[in-house]
């Protein structure tokens, strides 16, 4: 019961003191606003980079041509063999006949060329999709080992370079993001420390009149929470509306049609939630760190 009373009072005092020490609280709130805005924008960029690389990776696949002697029955058997290889997501069969009609449709001059042949000169094929671009090479090699395979290719060098570039880009975004979150935590908690420094006499008096450590820490922890949360309001508004507007203006893609932006609904709200949570948590822990310094006991 006593603990609940202390918690209740701490929440009340937290709000009171944010407004009583308004100029100092404002400094902490502004610091949180600016840093969280930077973090939010970075989250948006990182999310989109991740999305773009993933969707580009999905476009990567292996084209397998079957030997001329392969029958339709062989093709079906090969299909199930390929499907059994690890990391293979999908195998699409495309017979030489469907290639022929597709090509003729695309350009009638192909049709004229094909008429000169007695047999269909094309080969039956599979388009193999893998679930992980890094396994392209391994899967291709395994397919080549199978019988009745004329060739299996995925664009080797270009694709390998692309995959490693994506890898570097993804890792860099994660490192930058983590570093940014640390910097934000450091900046916000230091500003809050300054706010609390000016109130160390309050902490000293609380200690001298016999306030338990928990009773002393709680109001400051809640205050940090409130400051962090207030600091996240502007970044959330800017990011939610900013992204929705940017998405509409850019028609959902950037630079080329291939690089698609993540659809704003859900995505911006998740980012908003992350920002609010980050602000509140950093505020709380920042305050706790600062109070501990003056608690001594």
């Amino acid at each position: 019961m006593k603990m609940f009373r202390i918690i209740g009072r701490s929440i009340r005092d937290a709000f009171k003191s944010v407004f009583r020490n308004f100029s100092l609280s404002m400094a902490s709130i502004l610091c949180a606003t600016i840093t969280l805005l930077v973090v939010g924008i970075s989250l948006i960029i990182a999310g989109n980079i991740d999305n773009a690389t993933k969707s580009l990776e999905k476009e990567l696949n292996i084209v397998v041509y079957l030997d001329k002697s392969a029958t339709e029955y062989d093709a079906m058997e090969l299909k199930s063999k390929i499907e059994a290889i690890a990391n293979v997501e999908k195998v699409e069969y495309k017979s030489k006949e469907s290639w022929k009609s597709e090509m003729s449709e695309y350009n009638p001059s192909f049709g004229t060329v094909f008429e000169n042949y007695e047999d269909n000169p094309l080969l039956d094929s599979f388009v193999v999709t893998v679930n992980n671009s890094k396994s392209l090479d391994k899967v291709t090699k395994q397919i080549r080992e199978l019988e009745l395979i004329e060739s299996a290719n995925y664009g080797e060098d270009t694709v390998n370079t692309m995959v490693s570039v994506f890898d570097v880009v993804k890792k860099t975004t994660i490192v930058v993001l983590i570093a940014l979150i640390f910097v934000t935590a450091f900046l916000i908690s230091n500003t809050i420390k300054l706010t609390i420094y000016s109130r160390r006499s309050e902490i000293e008096i609380m200690r001298l009149v016999g306030g338990s450590n928990a009773a002393i820490k709680l109001p400051f922890v809640f205050e940090g929470f409130v400051i962090g949360l207030l600091g996240s309001i502007i970044p959330i508004i800017v990011i939610v509306y900013g992204y929705i507007i940017a998405f509409e203006r850019l028609d959902g893609h950037i630079i080329t049609d291939i690089i698609k932006l993540i659809s704003p609904y859900n995505f911006v709200f998740i980012i908003a939630g992350i920002i609010a949570l980050l602000g509140a948590l950093i505020g709380m822990f920042g305050s706790l760190r600062a109070v501990r310094k003056y608690l001594k006991v």
Binding site: S201, E204, M206, L208, V209, G210, G211, A215, I216
Partner: peptide, 29 residues
Amino acid sequence: KIGVVFQDFKLLPKLTVYENVAFALECLG
């Protein structure tokens, strides 16, 4: 169990007389 009186009073400037005295008891819950 101990009350301490200081030379420099150590009052909280933003609290009234009543609040300053009550502060000690509020800390105790």
